[in-house]
Design a protein around this nucleic acid. Structure first.
Lengths: 210, 210
DNA sequence: AATAACCCGAACAACGGTGTACGAGTTTGA
DNA sequence: TCAAACTCGTACACCGTTGTTCGGGTTATT
């Protein structure tokens, strides 16, 4: 639960990055993170030894930087979330027009990123708690919720469903599409249009003849 | 991979149920199955010891009936699938009218059953292969595919998406709803109507103004 | 009542994963 | 160049899970 380099000052306050790491250590941490994200994203049952081997490092070295498995997972989640966050912000910044167009753009440009976050989620919920994970998860959700709310105000999204449920369904289907691509049932190219036409149909205001 | 009671005749042919089990054994097998289905449906990281304890039986007794963990999972999958199959058939038999009404009925009456199948899926894919699982999974899918195809012919479901994807999305959202109920974000009562209004919007023919 | 089927607890071996300790080598940064 | 930082392999202890064995007790079936 504690990072290797985090030490305590006299008054017990936590220092984050006081003594700078050596260059090779920094590099190794990056490779560990990248390798682990890749492994956890593909396989289940990934051990610390697997990560070390795949990263071309010794197992002890991994433990030197991430004292426990939970620490590694936590760092991984933080890393993945920030990447997703950034991808969403980039997209929203250059998004123009109504919310449904923006949503289509968002799906197009971020659904692969969210993909990696998918399997990691299972490991994270297992190792960390579900609550702690969702707290990490929040910023990404908020962006989507905001976009959906904007769409409702613009009248391009339906208002007869709770926003929570709409956003949850949104992410759920994106994850599902990623699974289908991995299973070879949907091609990587076909997925975005499949997703947008499914999701927009789901979120559009419904005709009164229910 | 082999059931406790399955023996081989002289010519090596497999006998399924030749010597009938004693009544208490039959009863215990049933409780093991029910308990395990419940445990695997709720928690992750379920061990054979957990199953035995929850069933009020000795660990060895469990192994007496299911020689390996994989055997138990397999039996569990078969059991769950057959229950889902039966629930769907019951519903489809008394279903009247158009396919979209039938689908709404189907969701109403089977989404809790499919719920149990949800987390079990993760364990099953981990223990068994993904292919073997999907072979077990097929009959349930086929029923849904057939219903969707009927809806397309009747003109109440859209035809611009592959049936595979529509059915996959269907199950995906049902599983998602079950997760939300478990997380306490959606009440058990609200879920069915939430699901039907989401899913029907997703499957309905889309207005040409895309 | 007698036999076979069954359940049980305890104990054991094997395995894999986690986390720690040590000593020796290598790389960096000043 | 030199000390500190870092890496490495090996080895060890610990834990939980799986699967098996054995002997004695309990229950169903005829």
């Amino acid at each position: 639960m504690v990072t290797a380099r985090d030490t305590r000052t006299a008054d017990g306050r936590r220092d984050e990055d006081d003594s700078p790491r050596r260059a090779d250590a920094e590099r190794n941490i990056a490779t560990i993170l990248a390798t682990a994200l890749d492994l956890f994203g593909r396989n289940d049952n990934v051990s610390m030894a697997d990560v070390a081997r795949a990263a071309g490092l010794g197992r002890v070295t991994v433990y030197a930087h991430f004292p426990s498995r939970a620490d590694l997972i936590d760092a991984l989640v933080v890393h993945a979330i920030s990447k997703a966050e950034q991808a969403m912000d980039d997209c929203l910044a250059r998004s123009h027009g109504s919310a449904d167009r923006a949503l289509a753009d968002l799906i197009d440009s971020t659904w692969q990123v969210l993909n990696h976050y998918r399997r990691l989620r299972a490991h994270a919920t297992a190792t960390l708690g579900a609550e702690r994970l969702s707290r990490h998860h929040d910023p990404v959700r908020h962006r989507a919720e905001h976009l959906v709310a904007r769409g409702q105000e613009e009248g391009v999204f339906r208002t007869d469903l709770p926003i929570d449920w709409m956003v949850t369904s949104l992410f759920s289907l994106i994850h599902t599409a990623a699974d289908e691509v991995e299973a070879g049932k949907v091609t990587e190219d076909a997925a975005p249009s499949l997703l947008t036409s499914t999701l927009l149909a789901m979120l559009r205001p419904q005709s009164p003849a229910q």
